[in-house]
Amino acid sequence: MSNWLLSICALIFVMVVVGGITRLTESGLSITEWKPITGAIPPLTEAQWSHQFELYKRIPEYQQLNSGMTLAEFKSIFFWEWVHRQLGRVIGLVALVPLVWFAARKAIPNGYGWRTGSIFLLVCVQGAIGWWMVASGLTERTDVSHVRLAVHLLTALFIFGFTLWTAFDLRSPGAEPRRVPTIGLWAFAALALQLLFGAYVAGLDAGYAFNTWPLMGGELYPEAAPWLEPVMRNFVDNPVTVQFIHRWWAFVVLVLAVVVARNVKAAGGRRESIFLHAAIGIQILLGIWTLLSGVSLHVAVAHQATAVLVVASFVAAVHRLAQAGQGASTALGTDRDDGRTYVPLIPSEVEGP
């Protein structure tokens, strides 16, 4: 079963990469209808292509930004959005068919039925969120809502992380579910916040605001930058503020990554420690390069792809800590006052795997 879940993770990784290309090539609004079943078949005749193009011509993006687009150019952006949606369908099938097969054979371990079922349901919900995001750009806007984009991206990464954690649980001794240590909760929360602002940067095209590093226009935070009212709007809608936070919160995540890596290495997870160090280091360098390159397509796509690897590295490291912590606590046989087995949540309490 773990191999099945890992295949879902691999498909989600490809999905996020294609989603990044779709966004950066401004292809996301090229398909203006949501047809989960019949939409799997692309236009096959010139008449069908002309019909899709006419539908695209009705939305603000075409009317205000792409009014001179040719049919050949439309086919190019249609391709990426169709591939993105097709991958969603494939992930849905890969999440459903083996699940039904395992359930029919009663091969799902105790405690994993609700988790594997939840993965399939989350994939379905993600498809609906994707359309909810696209729908925000079909009537009044020339792009999709950056808030809805953030929900779409973070949901994808949550499904990826949850599925990967479940796969690791199935591969652990006795297929025992593992609890997230306290340091892991802090790390995941900090990473989620960084990913949220990364999605805001993408949705607001905030990466184009300043292409210098480490200063923004020669200042830490440009004084001449517009400031929105009420103040809290700046943390969601202001491209300058959003880019500023995304720049520097990365180093908070880096500090937590170093702490997690240090603890996991002490618990015998040298490989997980190296993976985490490498992923977070490369991601920060790619983020800087994305800015300096003026948001080059290839660099920006690599930055988004590496974000998935960062999530994977955190999940692998924290799961190793959880496994070491639970194993050590059981061996020690230490109980709480309420009689339950004590599971240390601070990795430093564990001397070895």
Rank of each mutant, 00 (worst) to 15 (best):
M232Q: 15
L24V: 01
G218F: 02
T290W: 04
R105W: 04
F53L: 07
A156E: 08
L122E: 07
E351T: 14
T155M: 14
H277G: 09
E223Y: 14
A328H: 11
S348V: 12
R23Q: 04
G127V: 09
V252H: 00
E54F: 00
S348H: 09
L297Y: 10
V343Q: 12
Q323F: 05
G333Y: 00
H246A: 01
R58G: 00
M69L: 09
A190T: 11
G127Y: 06
G161S: 14
L122S: 11
L24M: 05
N263I: 00
F251M: 09
T306A: 13
Y200S: 04
A312C: 03
L309Q: 09
L286Q: 02
R148V: 10
S27Q: 10
V301E: 04
E272Y: 11
L220F: 15
W165K: 15
V94Q: 01
R340K: 13
P98F: 08
R178N: 02
A266H: 12
P60W: 01
I31Q: 03
Q194R: 07
A224D: 12
F314N: 08
R23M: 00
Y208R: 15
Q48V: 05
S76D: 13
D169S: 05
I21N: 01
G117M: 04
L220E: 08
S30G: 07
N238S: 09
D337E: 15
D169L: 05
M15I: 12
W289V: 14
N211T: 14
I12R: 08
F160H: 09
V299G: 07
D169E: 11
E46V: 00
S2E: 13
L215E: 12
